[in-house]
Design a protein around this nucleic acid. Structure first.
Lengths: 141, 141
DNA sequence: GCTAAATCAGCAACGAGTTGTCAAATTGAC
DNA sequence: GTCAATTTGACAACTCGTTGCTGATTTAGC
């Protein structure tokens, strides 16, 4: 069981590094990529909305959004529903950066799928979901 | 594929929290537990040796070791092989703390195994190892 | 032995994420 | 409408982990 945890953390670590490298092809980081991704697929959202979708703290996304805005990848739009909580929207530049990252990600996925076929992906996903559910019912957690 | 990554990170996150909670039963953290565990099973080691076994940076372990020493869970022993790199050894108090954590961990493992049987653990481990290997051969990483 | 390369401790800086607090804005119950 | 509860932005402090650098120590080639 300990080995399962060790291998889980190792896989997550390697995966994080792969993501960091992919994002790096467009001069971005894993965390910025995730934010761009959410905005690209979910339209315009406020900072708290993004943080809830990503399951991280509001302040963390606030900081990332400030950086992305300074770099010109994200623009603030007035929010008709909230006077002081603007909507985040991808700029043209931001959309292009996301596009570049997505291309690199696609290449990486195809590479990995050559050695780890789609059927294994499905099996691994199913086991991960069940393991996560089992951990969640542990009263200790 | 994106979903596989999402589920992998989610599982690792939940696992980390479970470990944090287990370590918390003895007033420790996940990271401190890992260090205690290495020292408990590997005898006396230097800081760089621990960091290599855990796959983290030396400075990180240095800081943890300093804290554990201040709390009296770890003691520094002179290293016959190296004048300025002392060996870390568990104190009686440290061994007791590790024992308490291990008991809580064992209880958690049994709980989880009720819903996620040993055969699934083996299957998940095998898939994780193969997926990690596939990610590692990705030239992007 | 002696010298070059690797390893080590200590320090600083940084990254990414967390929690906590406070005042302003929004929402909802009545 | 009013007022309490929630949400939000801004700011600060903190954790845990990283990299980078420097000087001392050890190791290995010769």
């Amino acid at each position: 069981m300990e080995q399962l945890y060790a291998e889980l953390f190792e896989a997550a670590g390697v995966g994080r590094r792969v993501g960091e490298t992919i994002a790096g092809t467009a001069g971005q980081t894993q965390a910025r990529w995730q934010t761009l991704w959410i905005l690209g697929s979910g339209g315009t959202l406020t900072v708290p909305q993004v943080s809830r979708r990503l399951g991280v703290s509001r302040q963390n996304i606030q900081r990332l959004a400030d950086q992305l805005q300074q770099e010109g990848l994200v623009a603030l739009e007035p929010n008709p529903d909230h006077k002081t909580s603007p909507l985040l929207a991808l700029t043209t530049e931001g959309r292009q950066a996301l596009e570049r990252i997505n291309l690199a990600a696609e290449a990486s996925h195809l590479e990995i799928l050559e050695q780890f076929p789609a059927s294994d992906v499905a099996a691994l996903r199913a086991l991960l979901r069940r393991f996560t559910a089992a951990m969640r019912t542990d009263p200790l957690s």
